[in-house]
């Protein structure tokens, strides 16, 4: 169990199925994610973002850090249980393939920095959320 004083307190979980973002363009995807994060949601996106979407997410996040008081930024992590020990290149190629074919076994966790760090360190904590 997670204690009452943990870093997750005050946040809720939002799962975005791949189908929900499939037809969105880069701006719409990033905007959707950031709106949820700013609304204190920890976003679990089915699948992973393309490289250009990741960098755009960082860019837009920085613009928001600059304009929104108390917003410190995001943490982004891709969780893929099948590829834990593989190189970046393998993951990257596989990631591209997944984006293209819509294979969505991996999860992308995006949220306020402190929360995602906890999940990345211990992915089983997601189970706490999912009950």
């Amino acid at each position: 169990m997670v204690s009452k004083n943990n870093k997750f307190k005050g946040f809720s979980l939002q799962i975005i199925p791949f189908n929900e973002v499939r037809n969105l363009n880069i701006s719409e995807r990033v905007k959707k994610i950031l709106n949820l994060v700013l609304g204190n949601k920890l976003v679990i996106l089915q699948g992973r973002l393309r490289p250009e979407e990741e960098i755009r997410l960082i860019e837009d996040t920085m613009a928001m850090v600059d304009h929104i008081k108390a917003f410190k930024g995001i943490e982004l992590a891709v969780i893929d249980p099948d590829m834990k020990n593989n190189s970046f290149f393998f993951k990257f190629k596989k990631g591209i393939a997944k984006t293209l074919v819509g294979d969505t076994s991996s999860l992308t966790v995006i949220g306020p920095a402190s929360v995602v760090k906890e999940v990345k360190n211990d992915p089983s904590k997601l189970e706490v959320f999912l009950g």
């Binding site: 943490e75 982004l76 970046f88």
Partner: peptide, 9 residues
């Protein structure tokens, strides 16, 4: 993730 994003791009 930052390294992966930079190199991926």
């Amino acid at each position: 993730q930052v390294n992966i994003t930079i190199i991926g791009n």
